[in-house]
Amino acid sequence: MTTDHRLVAQQLTLGYRERTVIEGLDLEVPPGQITAIVGANACGKSTLLRSLSRLLAPTHGQVLLDGKQVHRLPAKELARTLGLLPQSPIAPEGIAVSDLVGRGRTPHQGMFSRWSSDDDVAVAAALDATQTAELADRPVDELSGGQRQRVWIAMALAQQTDLLLLDEPTTFLDVSHQVEVLDLLTDLNRSRGTTIVMVLHDLNLAARYADRLIAIAGGTVHSSGEPRDVLTEDMVRAVFGLDSQIITDPTSERPLMLPLGRHGVVGSTADGRRSQ
């Protein structure tokens, strides 16, 4: 599989009606790498991701895939190169896992959705990669949160896109399932060279798993680059309005952010003031 697809946002301005969320944002997704987008709640991370995958048309600027505007590309052609897993996809009642994963093949099928043996192979590979093969015949609505998320990722894998965007793929999962999902995405990146862009809430997991971080604040890119350069005390203060201490994670040698709240820190007083 090729990994040299270039996804670029130029002077991107996004909003809903009068409310502008992203303004004049420039961004380049490094091919073949894992990029994590971080930022405070309602800073426009998800909006940005939706626009990168063409779900939202920009008010100004453009999103280019290999030099072509994504909003001009034929829908199915784009869906064969770029996949998106939204934050809360809906599973139809009672649908079986392998059936749902099969929906990922839609962009590869014709008008009357004829099924081919390629489709079977792709679905099987996606189930294997996400270790959901033993769930193949189970109804999706009976699965645990972690299993369900792996099934959705399997659907995105069955789409066989070189670029995969994910909106908070670890939300609502406990820590072991979060790690499991991020490991799975890393496997995918290392073995197939899939370019991954994901919105993540957890800064420390983002710093550990991403090759690059993009921090969003005030409707534009605050900083971007390798985790050690982006995850700094200054960034956390500017983007999240939070005091913090950054240390080096001994298990990964990546930066690790320790929040400094008013309580729970050595030396904090009963009324929540920190001694200087």
Binding site: S53, A75, L85, P86, P89, I90, P92, L100
Partner: peptide, 13 residues
């Protein structure tokens, strides 16, 4: 039925 965003991501206009 998978939601508008998922449908669009799968190439449905």
């Amino acid at each position: 039925p998978l939601g508008d965003d998922t449908a669009a991501a799968l190439g449905t206009r």
